Simulated assay, not measured.
Amino acid sequence: MSAVIFIPARYASTRYPGKPLVELAGADGTRKTLIQRSWEAAQQAGADAVYVLTDDDRIAEAARGFGADVLMTSDTARNGTERCAEGVAQLDRVPDTVVNLQGDAPLTPPWFVTALIEAMRDPAVQMATPVLRCDVQTLTNFVTDRQAGRVGGTTAVMRRDGTALYFSKEVLPFVGSLSAPPEVWHHVGVYAYRPAALADYMGWDEGPLERAEGLEQLRFLENGTPVTCVPVEAQGRVFWELNNPADVARIENVLKQEGIA
């Protein structure tokens, strides 16, 4: 089964403009842009090809500078999923699976991506995404961010069969106490799609839930397409996305702890 990884990246982020070009210091002090660190993470997943997708010349130039293949997409793409659909249309050969590894997730372990690709071997799965059971540190970060009025990440609520009920930037379910918290699942910003599911997505309008939460995957749920949640294990690695300027220090601390240059 063929699989291609796309890394959508845009300059005009609402919460953090210019985020893909923010530099992060590694364990030895080496500074690399967020988009380069995300691309390096994608390279470890063993896909057939990895492409950076962007509509911004600054990001494209930076990506080509560190050796990435780049596909230019339109400035009308409203999110990474739409950008992936535009990317597929530029490929000479359509892959069986398209993986969207968001450009703000440089700490994504390669086994998260391979788990998604394995899940897509089931022909009934049209779209899949990883979920990670929150440890105390991550859950504390979530709750602290929300108390401070920041969006620190996304949580997933699932049915018994593993398909998603809902995704939210709120911490769901409600956490009344960190000393005895409920089971909370962190949604990891990686998606795998069938090319046909991407084509369907482009034919749907943005719905009220997607608009309110700013979460592109809700368009699938609002239009009746199941989203399969694939539980993954951190295996001792801290996972965190760069959503706010405060996350730079958090990610740099993990890079240092993991010895990632």
Rank of each mutant, 00 (worst) to 15 (best):
G224Q: 07
I260P: 05
C229V: 13
A25T: 10
L116M: 14
R160F: 02
S2W: 10
A27C: 07
D92A: 14
L178Y: 05
R160N: 01
E222M: 10
Q43Y: 09
P245A: 06
V232T: 03
T129C: 15
S179G: 11
N244E: 02
F142C: 06
D48S: 13
A77R: 05
E233Q: 15
D135E: 14
P8W: 04
T81D: 01
N223A: 11
P208H: 04
A124E: 15
I5S: 12
Y191Q: 10
V171C: 02
L172P: 01
G153C: 10
T155Y: 08
P110D: 14
E258Y: 11
T33M: 06
E23I: 02
R10T: 06
A41W: 01
T54W: 00
V70E: 06
A3H: 10
A115F: 12
T33H: 05
N223D: 06
P182F: 13
V136F: 14
A63N: 10
L91P: 09
N79M: 11
M127Y: 07
V171T: 02
T76A: 03
D161T: 02
T14F: 11
L218D: 09
L71T: 12
N253K: 09
L172W: 06
P231W: 03
T228P: 03
Q217R: 09
R211D: 13
I7N: 07
R15M: 00
